[in-house]
Design a protein around this nucleic acid. Sequence first.
DNA 1: CACCAGGCAAACC
DNA 2: GGTTTGCATGGT
Length: 307
Amino acid sequence: MRFTLTPKPPFDFQKMMQRLTVTGKTHVLKLNKQFSEYEKIIRVEDVSCYVKVITRGTVNEPLLECHVQALNGDVSEGKAKEKIQQLFSTEVDLSPLYQQFSVHKELANVLKRFEGLKLLTDSDLFESIVKIIIGQQVNLTFAGTLTERLIQRSGEEVNVGGETFQTFPGPESVAKLTYEDLRELQFSQRKAEYIIDLARLITDGKLDFENLWTMTDEEVIETLLPIRGIGKWTIECLLIFGMGRPDVLPAADIGLRNAIKQVWELGMQPTEEEVRKLAENWRPWRTYITYYLWESLNQTPAVVDHT
DNA sequence: CACCAGGCAAACC
DNA sequence: GGTTTGCATGGT
């Protein structure tokens, strides 16, 4: 099927795609060189679908051309639309955010620099949380390498129109792995246990990620925190990158603290409590401001030395 | 060779 | 309760 979507402006498709390449790996996602096309195999209502999204508009008059091809079942156009709207944050209106901070001393410039950048969320909560667990306490480059190895080891290849697409392994595939399998890919023993045990929790029917969509942020935290390997930071990242929740603050995050140190020109990283206090008036946009501050780290401007 | 990286759990006061 | 320690390994 084919349909179009009109995201609420400003919406900068290119910026959203470009940031995915900072670690050099986009994993199971395919992008064209101009960052104007997105292709991925996505599950909609338990049906694998080939999804292609092309930008046909501008930042202020955005238009998305969407192609969806169900591979092993049927999917309604309504559900497919809903999924893509969620993925690309099309219904989020960022203009109140920009207005609220248009004269803010530290934030105005950062918001201006990434204007139109919306969250591109992961298409699957299991995929999202596995990537986040892999990213715990290691640099992003190494995390990308480990994620790539997991995909190669357990992901499936799907053929669509003569072209091959990799899929991110589902819980069923990961649950079949042994800890030793992941150790061979240079996962730490603990991360191997976290990820495989989580997959088995899901395949055993003891945890249903789809329920999370009906919960508040606090309820999601309460539900996932008891699971071994899933701490507060991991859940906050899932709320952001997996679910696109708009007002999440990972106050203890080392990247956020570094970004604040830089943008506010502090002598040292603020503590978690200091971040919380500073971000109090970021409501209800704490996710997006965090996101933009993270982005400012990826594209660090030359440091001007005034001495 | 150090120190850091978009943490977490278990042990220890 | 809050605090400290061990984990593992690539990047710089």
